Computed example of a mutant assay.
Amino acid sequence: MSDHALLAVQGAPLEKVTHRSVKDEVAERFATLIVSGVLNVGDTLPSERDLAATMGVSRETIRGALLILSTKGIVSVVQGARTKVASDDVGDLGLPSLLNRRVTEYSLDDVHEGRLMAERQVAVLAAQRTEPGMLNELEHLIDVQMAAINDPVRFLIADRAFHTAIYHACGNAVLSDLATTLYSYQLDHRRRAIAEPGAIAQSIADHRVILSALKAGDAKALAEGLGVHEQRIYDSTRAVLAETTKKATE
């Protein structure tokens, strides 16, 4: 499958006219990962090979995307060394809502309720519209997640690809963008939560349940699977926030 096709099933915008290259799309995804807190300044990125497998594109595309970010001073690329995040000032790249920081103004409870509602409707549509190519890509992403079971950052990159692919499968651009924005809330805390022992394994198990429901075209089971998964995310994020608040007051 071509880079363009893989980006399409992993959540490229629906029904939108764009003249950006694939490497531009991937650069934007990296920028979103940085501004949402999955990748922090000083972090070393996974290898080009691992990034290519996780994001479903060629190593050449990854190299081109990193070059774009490097010219903007967002990442530091040194020959013979791993690429590092150099700045979180991503300029005009990344999700607009995250750049404006509006999503960070919402309460955790509000985002939780909003995500449950959005994903419930995503489930209704995705169960009807998901195609075999998408199911194959989701299977691949679970394999990538298994390979990243001891690497929270790489796992979260694959996790985002998994969720945005499902959102895209619903076939509604507005709903897909809304669900993606809500997913991106508090990812910096999500990174801490997913590093807890057993957290990645549990998340992968949830993903298998979600994929099984998609394969069956069962909207009710899909909504339940997404809901259980979101509840775990909410509970673990709330625990991290509570611990952060406790430490700040000690």
Rank of each mutant, 00 (worst) to 15 (best):
S2C: 05
D3V: 06
H4K: 14
A5E: 14
L6E: 10
V9Q: 02
Q10V: 00
A12R: 15
K16A: 15
V17T: 14
V22C: 10
K23Y: 08
V26P: 01
V26E: 03
A27T: 04
A27H: 05
R29M: 07
F30N: 03
T32D: 13
L33Y: 11
L33C: 08
I34N: 07
V35N: 07
S36L: 01
S36K: 01
V38W: 02
D43V: 05
D43Y: 05
A52D: 05
A52P: 02
A52R: 10
A52I: 11
A53T: 04
T54C: 10
V57W: 08
V57H: 06
V57M: 06
E60I: 13
T61Q: 03
R63K: 15
G64E: 13
A65Y: 05
I68P: 00
L69N: 03
S70W: 01
S70R: 14
T71L: 09
G73A: 10
G73W: 13
I74R: 01
V77A: 11
V78P: 00
Q79Y: 13
G80C: 07
T83S: 10
S87Y: 05
S87T: 05
D92C: 00
G94Q: 04
L95Y: 07
R101S: 11
Y106W: 12
D109G: 09
D109C: 00
H112C: 04
E113S: 14
G114N: 05
G114V: 04
G114S: 06
M117C: 07
A118S: 14
E119P: 01
A126Q: 08
A127F: 09
A127R: 06
G133Q: 09
G133W: 00
L135T: 13
N136S: 14
E139R: 13
I142K: 08
I142S: 06
D143H: 09
M146V: 12
M146K: 13
A147N: 13
A148W: 03
N150G: 15
D151E: 12
R154C: 04
R154L: 15
F155R: 02
F155D: 04
L156G: 06
H163A: 14
H163D: 05
T164H: 10
T164F: 03
T164S: 12
A165S: 15
Y167K: 00
H168C: 09
S176Q: 15
T180K: 05
T180F: 01
T180R: 09
T180S: 15
L182R: 07
Y183K: 02
S184A: 14
S184P: 00
Q186H: 13
H189Q: 15
R190V: 11
R190M: 11
R192P: 00
A193Q: 06
P197I: 08
G198I: 03
A199S: 15
A201T: 13
Q202E: 14
D206L: 02
D206H: 15
H207A: 13
R208H: 11
L211H: 13
L214P: 03
L214V: 09
K215M: 10
L222D: 07
A223V: 04
A223R: 09
H229C: 07
H229A: 08
Q231L: 12
Y234H: 14
V240E: 13
A242C: 01
A242S: 12
K246R: 15
K247E: 14
K247M: 12
A248F: 06
E250N: 11
